[in-house]
Design a protein around this nucleic acid. Sequence first.
DNA 1: CTGAAAGCGCTTACAG
DNA 2: CTGAAAGCGCTTACAG
Lengths: 345, 345
Amino acid sequence: MNQRRRPTQSDVAKAARVSQATVSLVLSGSPHPRTRVSDESRQRVLDAAEQLGYAPNALAQGMVRGRSRVMGVFTYEPVFPRDGSNFYHPFLVGMEAAAEQIAVDLLLFTSAPLVGKRRRLVDTGWNRVQIADGCVLIGRLGDADEVATLSEQRYPFVHIGRREGSQQLPIPHVGADYVAATAAVVERLHGLGHRRIAFLGDLGGAVSALDRLNGYRTAIERHGMRPIMLDAAAFSPGETIEVLTTNGATAVLLSTVTISPQELADAATHAGRTVPTDLSIAVLGESEVSPAIDRRWSGFTIPRVEMGEAALRLLDQIVRGDTDLPHEQLLPCATVPGTTVATVS
Amino acid sequence: MNQRRRPTQSDVAKAARVSQATVSLVLSGSPHPRTRVSDESRQRVLDAAEQLGYAPNALAQGMVRGRSRVMGVFTYEPVFPRDGSNFYHPFLVGMEAAAEQIAVDLLLFTSAPLVGKRRRLVDTGWNRVQIADGCVLIGRLGDADEVATLSEQRYPFVHIGRREGSQQLPIPHVGADYVAATAAVVERLHGLGHRRIAFLGDLGGAVSALDRLNGYRTAIERHGMRPIMLDAAAFSPGETIEVLTTNGATAVLLSTVTISPQELADAATHAGRTVPTDLSIAVLGESEVSPAIDRRWSGFTIPRVEMGEAALRLLDQIVRGDTDLPHEQLLPCATVPGTTVATVS
DNA sequence: CTGAAAGCGCTTACAG
DNA sequence: CTGAAAGCGCTTACAG
């Protein structure tokens, strides 16, 4: 009965007594078409479209234009995990803001089932990905092969988080400048009189961990200090404090998911050292696993909202075919004054 | 150079020395096709597709099938507001879980710009909406006309939150059973000996508020008690306590965004009444504005994750053309024992 | 200025 | 069993 299908350009054309092509020209033609339509025809088309409630089929437009004005967001883990942790939220805040400005919709690839703990992009999600003009990739579990495949296929994408590619196939990404931010923390501590500053981190090999380590080393060496690097995985909080004391450290930079700042502070207290009077603690950004770090911890925060925004903007430029774009965009981290660093006593 | 376009079925056909139609049949034909392909051809097609890295163009499939396996999520306010509030998050948790199971992707309509404080669905977003097979609508600011337009156009959609339509055009929705949940709270208090139970709420007229009020009244009358209904907008917390005392209320149900449970409790303390000894307080679900309610408050919570899941499931059924679906699906709220109600003293 | 035509990449009857 | 053809709704040269 009322189950009428949506009107198409042909319907409008019939009503306006023009050709379907003319309708297309009037309703969704380029602003500077090579062919013009008489004002009379144009008006008839406009009226008919209005009257029929015509709206273009975005799928058909997307197909012929090769663009859909949809940007994909692929996360290797669930975007909205059930456990209430909320790692991706800030990125999405930024992406939504940017999406509104560049007028694109965001497609979350929720159809790719989790295999093990992560989603497979290329296998299952591959043909789905192409619904979008490009894709933002987020997550720690990113697979190098998958990313390489995207590159090879010249599919436009931007990775959130620093990521090394190859000379021929660089990986466009938006990251945080951990090197500078970590160096700045060292500078700050040095300015407060600290001369024995330790680094407690996951010395495994993640890019983001290495960046922090590099920033630490550079700044330490610049001031002729001796680096004290501890692998968080090797010690319990109590042992860590012991080692710090043995090394005469008056400050420690924390870059690990193994020990929380609170655990470390508790261990210090337990050992009779007061934070920050006897030991300054600085946190090098929220960890990805437990993003919520209280603002009272001194250190820096990762500019996630800005990273989300920048990633979508960069992706948009890539999709538009802008060439000569930098493959790397590093955003500055914001210093957190906090209350856990102080002048050396 | 390497700027090769993605291979199409025609490319595969050429490589496999069959027709494009045969490729379609092999690669994305229905499980029970009316025409069969010889095993030999099939294998050649499969090999060629593999070799060329063929993946179907989901846009083209969507167009010809009239389905895209994309479900839209339309929120009248930003999904991810910058202020860090997080109203939609639980719904998205549920929708993502359901999306994975029914194998659809989620399209967030972030391209519709905010007009004033809200997005316009029909104007700007209208043709975008149709990229999706159907759409989940969430938000307090829903416009009745827009929803009516969707109904008239027979566009598949599901509203989250109870919503009355008309006889001819009912609005499919998933809500929470506030009536039953509120009645249950009254029952609980009655069981604890309370005989003068007040209701403090926004008596304005939102459906969800009326539901709670109805549940309250029904339960109150069932036990022959006298209803005590207070408009939260009319009193300060201090005055509220006064009125409650005057009315001899030993318990109060809180259903308002005007006064927070904590404010009310503080006012009670200030007036020399201890919670819950002298006054039991029950909270009738998280408010939409400040969703985080501590579990220590007795009352109930809104099953948002489940609502998100149910909404997407219902939408999927509607899209599949399931007829005779109930237009309303009410989910039970979970009781929160809490520590703010006690036996009447 | 306007219409007929080709084509985007697919699916699905319909002939051979 | 396989191919040629039509068509989904659009855009964009190309003739009149």
